[in-house]
Design a protein around this nucleic acid. Structure first.
Lengths: 381, 381
DNA sequence: CTGTTAGCGCATTCAA
DNA sequence: TTGAATGCGCTAACAG
């Protein structure tokens, strides 16, 4: 708590008041930083021209005699040469960075997508640059602009919020775009589609098989295409079994506000249980829009003395990594997050390396996978 | 499943076999990309010199007449001018990007730290570039090198694995480094320290107050400083109450391997319960090394018919966002992840803006905060 | 206040 | 196979 006024940055953030901090060796003189060595230095030391040095140090494949190559490599090593990627990108107009925009880093689903992207990108010596938009269109725009400014010409957006003009601008600039879980299609982009109808069918089939006939559907607001699709799938599947399913059986949360920590789905789940209990119907099973929401549902249910699956069964969608950690472990329909990231990234890199200007619009189609755990029990009627 | 051979990127990854994908409009001709407009274009259109245009478009604060300023702004707007940050950075040798390296994006603790960093960085118009090392030293080194190559001269590493020479190289290059949850100190860096002894004391005090006297400590391998610190704190606190606490009461998992999904702490928790049950002692409470581990413990306990907190109480450390979602919601000692990110980032930006070469070594010291939920119950003996 | 000039570090023509 | 020369887009001296 020393010298806090000396600290030139804004310290008005509330949490910073609680932090004790100390300065150790203020007077430690920094070793004067020599600028990093450049191609020029290397060339000079090796006694070759700049261009020759460039040719070997950039792995251009351009033929250089073994003699010179050796001298250059040695000099580079001695001088601890590190290429300046900025200059390289500026000159050659080709970046090896892929931008990735996610709504939030707090939802493990998106983290899994990133993992998939990363696995492919790394394989091809691409770096990924991750941004989170916090489900905020303005932020999304800002990040896209920043990508343009940094001449990052490949971009993957997960669960984009609007068909922003900024995105079209990006494409006009020559940027390649892939959209995962998008609400819309756009020309010249790679997109994913998920068979939500099929996923819903899997969930319903299983519940029916376990003897359930009174089924409720609990969801976040239907502002996203995928939520509507799942609802439609659930409805069709249930009706196909000749079981009634009406508006009364659908519970829609009203609060779309993002919580501070970014896991507002959890709070929606809790809210949904309130709605749910206002209904008089005697449900034996709940289908939740996703796992995070299901977590909230389980907790709120427990607090009302209703336990899953003894008193009511629960199934949802996503299969995030925590779904096996909660009690009871969630029975869920997995949406292949990693595959989405990986395949879309593959295709994106492919599209970059295609030098012709023909642009391939491709759609990847994914299917859900049923994962049985403990949140649904068999009932005999 | 069409044309999969045509796909020039490697498609040998197993999951890609299951994906149906289609090409829509292969022949869509791409609008020929004009190179982005540059300062030169803007200057020409506005009828001013390059430098004048630069001066207004880079917000340099350099005085320019309102007349010209207006013309330049207008031209820039008309031409849809977007500055090339690469060129700017190359020329001015100052980047506005902060690199952030985390062990994994799967652990919400680190995500919270990132949130803290982001909140400060954004406020100062800095971008953050996130990398995950997957607890792999080689990856860590690669990312640091990549940061050097991109002339990103500010770096925050969370839970760094080794005192790599690469890091010193980075500092020698003039890079500013902040270390969060580091095992070691290093000159010319900003670091955090957490009062683990105090945090452990909070946990023990609470258990004692709730009537517990037979307490077990379950932990991941003691390879990290913070784990050892917590253990020491627990031991001292318990003994202070005159209650015996010996090696028999400490359960240490043996498996340090990272799981594919990155939440190996969870599996450690499950493994720990196996060890725990080999003991004959009659514990009434468990202290777990962190929340993720506690999740595994709860589940494994449940599967053996032991429920928390009815049969045994449980307390741990971190307070990740899922701790309130599991059942029972976890009683835990919060470690202030966001504050760590925020304060360290503040200081880092401060150190960048200090043009003098005196480097300030600073330590931030954090305290745990007790969070009462449902996983501990009062017992009467 | 404005413009001219130089050059950040590199890849890439073109000529030898 | 090598080297000299050019310029990617920008900022920062410097001179007016």
């Amino acid at each position: 708590m020393i010298n806090i006024e000396k600290f030139s940055f804004e310290l008005t953030l509330p949490f910073l008041n609680d932090i004790v901090w100390t300065v150790l060796s203020v007077e430690a003189e920094m070793k004067k930083t020599d600028r990093a060595s450049t191609l020029k230095n290397v060339a000079a030391m090796a006694g070759v021209s700049l261009s020759t040095a460039s040719r070997v140090l950039s792995n251009s494949g351009y033929p250089v005699s073994d003699l010179l190559k050796g001298r250059i490599l040695e000099a580079a090593d001695k001088l601890n040469y590190t290429p300046n990627i900025l200059a390289r990108t500026l000159r050659s107009n080709t970046s090896h960075i892929i931008g990735v925009i996610v709504p939030t880093l707090q939802n493990p689903f998106f983290n899994q997508v990133i993992l998939g992207i990363e696995s492919i990108a790394n394989k091809h010596d691409y770096e990924i640059m991750i941004f989170s938009s916090h489900r905020n269109i303005e932020q999304e725009r800002k990040h896209i602009n920043s990508l343009i400014q940094n001449r990052v010409m490949a971009l993957i957006i997960i669960s984009i919020d609007t068909e922003s003009t900024t995105l079209k601008k990006y494409i006009d600039y020559g940027g390649k775009v892939a959209l995962i879980e998008s609400n819309f299609r756009l020309n010249h982009t790679i997109i994913t589609e998920t068979d939500y109808l099929g996923a819903a069918q899997l969930a319903v089939d299983y519940l029916i098989e376990k003897g359930h006939r009174k089924i409720a559907f609990l969801t976040a607001p239907l502002t996203k295409t995928y939520r509507r699709s799942i609802l439609v799938g659930v409805e069709e599947a249930i009706k196909e079994y000749g079981i009634p399913f009406t508006e009364k059986d659908i519970f829609i949360a009203t609060n779309e506000t993002e919580s501070e920590t970014g896991v507002y789905e959890f709070f929606l789940g809790r809210q949904l249980v309130d709605l749910f209990f206002q209904s008089k119907a005697n449900y034996t099973a709940i289908i939740a829009i996703n796992d995070l929401t299901a977590f909230g549902i389980i907790q709120a249910l427990n607090q009302r003395g209703v336990s899953v699956p003894q008193d009511i069964s629960l199934i949802s969608f996503d299969n995030i990594i925590y779904s096996e950690m909660v009690s009871p472990a969630l029975t869920t329909v997995e949406l292949p997050s990693r595959s989405m990231g990986a395949s879309v990234c593959s295709m994106l890199l492919d599209s970059i390396s295609n030098t012709n200007d023909k642009l391939t619009d491709v759609i990847f189609r994914f299917e859900g996978r049923f994962v049985e755990r403990e949140s649904v029990r068999k009932i005999s009627r």
